[in-house]
């Protein structure tokens, strides 16, 4: 390897190789995000997006004094927690089961990854039917065990739980495979010595599997957190006509939906940019907090 690298005769070629990636990324990835901060200091009307008026921090002042922002932040947080935590726990459990010597291994893996191949839109449309108040299958099933029909859409907790079901359904199999990959790279002798020490299956899981998976778990937590802060399609489509509000009473309006509503229904692109930039800052902070917390805990545990 080092022989190849030591050759200095490559000239500008390496830069040409990486240039397309960085150029496209700079133009359509980095620049728009940074420019969002600039737009957020202006008033821009969707009906005339090519004109903008400087308003300074006015958009942020309005945003932080708006109940709808805090409502969306809270919803994003609760939906994030109730969809991410069970999702990752279930995924870990499934991965553990998939790690046994199994017949039909490939079948199980592919079947569990099917939801991942289903689009947000398709999944949400199917589930919003299943969660229907009057004719939904879930209420019908609940009825079989004597539970009264639940108006999933209109309650805060019921709707958020329905959304977390959709999100969990789509991502559980994917995360299980990530964990499974991690588990399979755990050196076998760790299990052997644990078995020799008389560790039960549960103890093996707890004291061998989980610690070995730490980097993978941290990775999935970070990725899921970033995903959770941006949740958009599920609440939008679950709400049907009121989707852009996140339900008629904004009971499940997330930050992503708020951005869309302010920009494309209320025509306030500058204000929506303030929402986007705030989300960006929240993501950066959340990732940093996640990683430091995890690092510290593990150092303490180690």
């Amino acid at each position: 390897m080092f022989k190849a690298r030591r050759r200095a005769g490559q000239g500008s070629a390496p830069y040409l190789f990486v240039a397309p990636f960085f150029l496209v990324f700079a133009a359509f990835g980095l620049f728009p995000i940074l420019y969002t901060a600039w737009v957020s200091l202006h008033a821009v009307d969707l009906q005339n997006p090519n004109e903008s008026t400087w308003v300074g921090l006015e958009n942020y002042r309005k945003l932080f004094s708006s109940d709808f922002f805090w409502n969306a932040l809270e919803n994003t947080f609760t939906i994030g927690v109730i969809s991410t935590v069970p999702q990752l726990c279930i995924a870990l459990g499934i991965a553990h089961l998939l790690n046994y010597r199994l017949r039909g291994r490939t079948f199980f893996r592919v079947a569990m990854l099917m939801p991942y191949a289903t689009s947000v839109a398709a999944a949400t449309l199917v589930f919003s039917g299943l969660f229907g108040r009057d004719f939904g299958m879930i209420n019908w099933l609940l009825g079989q065990v004597g539970v009264n029909p639940v108006d999933w859409d209109s309650g805060r907790w019921t709707s958020q739980n329905a959304l977390s079901t959709i999100i969990t359904w789509r991502w559980v199999g994917y995360n299980a495979l990530i964990y499974l990959a991690g588990m399979q790279s755990v050196p076998a002798d760790l299990y052997e010595s644990a078995a020799i020490d008389g560790a039960s299956r549960w103890q093996q899981f707890r004291y061998v599997t989980i610690p070995s998976l730490r980097p993978t778990i941290l990775f999935t937590i970070v990725v899921s957190t970033i995903g959770a802060i941006q949740v958009f399609g599920e609440p939008l489509l679950f709400g049907g006509v009121s989707g852009h509000l996140g339900g008629a009473g904004r009971q499940y309006q997330t930050l992503g939906v708020l951005l869309y509503d302010e920009g494309w229904f209320n025509y306030k692109l500058g204000y929506a940019a303030a929402v986007a930039w705030t989300m960006f800052v929240i993501i950066v902070v959340a990732v940093l907090v996640n990683t430091t917390l995890a690092r510290r805990r593990w150092r303490n545990a180690a």
Binding site: L30, I33, T36, V39, V44, I229, G263, F280
Partner: peptide
Amino acid sequence: MIPPSLGAIPLYM
């Protein structure tokens, strides 16, 4: 770690 969707507004413009 950067979610590209957050640049959607300038991109739209």
